[in-house]
Write a protein that binds this DNA or RNA. Structure first.
Length: 437
RNA sequence: CGGAGCGUGGCGCAGUCUGGUAGCGCACUUCGCUGGGGGUGAAGGGGUCGUAGGUUCGAAUCCUAUCGCUCCGACCA
């Protein structure tokens, strides 16, 4: 993509409303624009990152045996009356009335809807277990949205739901998600720590929140420092084996959010206690028959008698992750994208647009990378170099290739790694090989 | 939902106290110089001062209402 074609409205000054790094950089880098409080448009650069995150989640969910579907944003009030949550949920639920005076709502979550789908389609224990998920926009009418996409009213969430015939099987489904979550966040270069959590309005008795440690986290968290170095299960993890030992290991040491604090543990752990702030990026629940019972979701068991389904639900804040990743990875100049979610892998800076040797070298580099399907953004604008360097650092692409007349006299370009800051003078081909290798 | 603020050109702000018909920086447009970290000179374009009503000869400025947004707290993926 040529920058003269790409829609990238960057901002030099800090918007005054943005208090934290991720919000500031997302606005400045032209990733998002606010529409109204807590509601944002995703501009091309931000949208590319969002899609990358979605895809990683998709791959890890599918690998763990889940299946993706898509449920609507607007739901009928009836199913929420059935579960009993219509009156409980309060003002955070955006309620709507259609032209036939039918009560509708913009879904804040989908337990009722998925239960409705499964109960009407699955009749036999032989069809279970199943784990279904979607990545859909949700709406919660937050009293006070803040921190940009980290706490918006409208947000993209991956929510999955497991259905099993008994508790043992349900816990196995829960464990699969536990592992899949560790893998998902690790692929985004995030250190997400599973912590005991409150189950809140969703209910249930087994639940973990996954928190990314960051100074700007919304909640105070505590954990044993050794958890930070636990090894994340690899891509070859076999989900058909017993996963309990891995889950047991990850839950063996103390880790809790402020709502589940156990002060006696703190004195016990002593110097190994880590006290930090965390951003919640995932939350998993096992809640048994809370919804299946209320909504009559049953299947026929081997003996012909009805079995009430055992359920769990599993959320990941997809849009929030964009902010969380930036909080975890930035410097004073801007964002530093991990490779896996970067909107482009490489940025080419033409230091002297109009200079024949520069233009030719840039075009050649750009074409070569495109031919190899490397995602590349070519800054071909006729701007001063300072502007180009500043914008490139701001948008945080992992690699920068800087091409100017001075280096070209020696047949060299400069390859800069955004994360390490290391710069090397190389031939165009060596630079390409470094990036591809 | 409690508390505190702010709405003036695309962005950041001054002007409001003490009424006299709008200004600064950045950005933008054109041209020139410059050319390895937000360079520079000249010439331009763009605002019924959030909205509505009121007071006044006259309102960005005073009064009333209303809408929007932000920050702190309580709440939450």
């Amino acid at each position: 993509m040529r920058l003269t074609d790409f829609f990238l409205p960057t901002i030099k000054e800090n918007p005054k409303e943005a208090q934290i790094a991720s919000h500031r950089f997302m606005l400045r880098a032209g990733m998002i624009r606010q529409s109204s409080a807590g509601i944002y448009s995703w501009l091309p650069l931000g949208f590319r990152v969002l899609k990358k995150i979605e895809q990683i989640i998709r791959e890890e969910m599918d690998r763990a045996g889940c299946q993706e579907l898509l449920m609507p944003t607007i739901q009928p009030a009836e199913i929420w009356r059935e579960s009993g949550r219509y009156d409980v949920y309060g003002k955070e639920m955006l309620r709507l009335i259609d032209r036939h005076d039918r009560e509708m709502l913009y879904g804040p979550t989908n337990e009722e809807m998925i239960t409705e789908i499964v109960r009407s389609s699955i009749r036999s224990y032989k069809d279970l277990p199943k784990n279904l998920y979607h990545q859909q926009w949700k709406f919660r009418d937050e009293v006070r949205p803040r921190f940009g996409v980290m706490r918006g009213k409208e947000f993209l969430m991956k929510d999955g739901y497991s259905f099993d015939v008994n508790k043992e099987s349900a816990i196995n489904s829960y464990n699969k998600m536990f592992i899949a979550y560790l893998r998902t966040f690790a692929r985004m270069d995030l250190k997400a720590i599973p912590m005991q959590a409150d189950t809140g309005p969703i209910g249930g008795d087994l639940s973990h929140e996954f928190l990314v440690l960051a100074e700007t986290g919304e909640s105070e968290v505590f954990c044993h420092k050794d958890i930070l170095n636990f090894e994340v299960p690899g891509p070859d993890t076999d989900y058909s084996t017993d996963l309990q030992p891995i889950v047991d290991k990850w839950t063996s040491l103390y880790a809790a959010t402020d709502e589940k604090v156990d002060v006696s543990k703190h004195t016990e752990i002593g110097a190994s206690l880590v006290s930090a702030r965390g951003i919640e990026v995932g939350h998993i629940f096992y809640f048994g028959d809370k919804y299946s019972k209320a909504m009559g979701a049953t299947v026929a068991g081997p003996d012909g008698n009805d079995i009430t389904l055992e359920m769990g639900s599993y959320g990941i804040g997809v849009s929030r992750l964009v902010g969380a990743i930036i909080e975890a990875s930035h410097d004073d100049n801007g964002i530093i994208w991990p490779d896996a979610v970067a909107p482009f892998k490489v940025g080419i800076i033409n230091l002297r647009v109009g200079d024949k040797s520069c233009d030719i070298a840039c075009e050649e580099t750009y074409t070569k990378m495109r031919d190899q399907y490397v995602e590349v953004l070519y800054d071909d604008r006729n701007e001063s170099v300072g502007v180009k360097f500043a914008d490139m650092d701001l948008i945080g692409l992992p690699w920068q290739i800087v091409i100017g007349p001075r280096g070209l006299k020696e047949g060299k370009v400069e390859l800069k790694n955004r994360s390490s800051g290391v710069k090397e003078e190389l031939s165009i081909n060596d630079a390409l090989n470094n990036i591809l290798g």
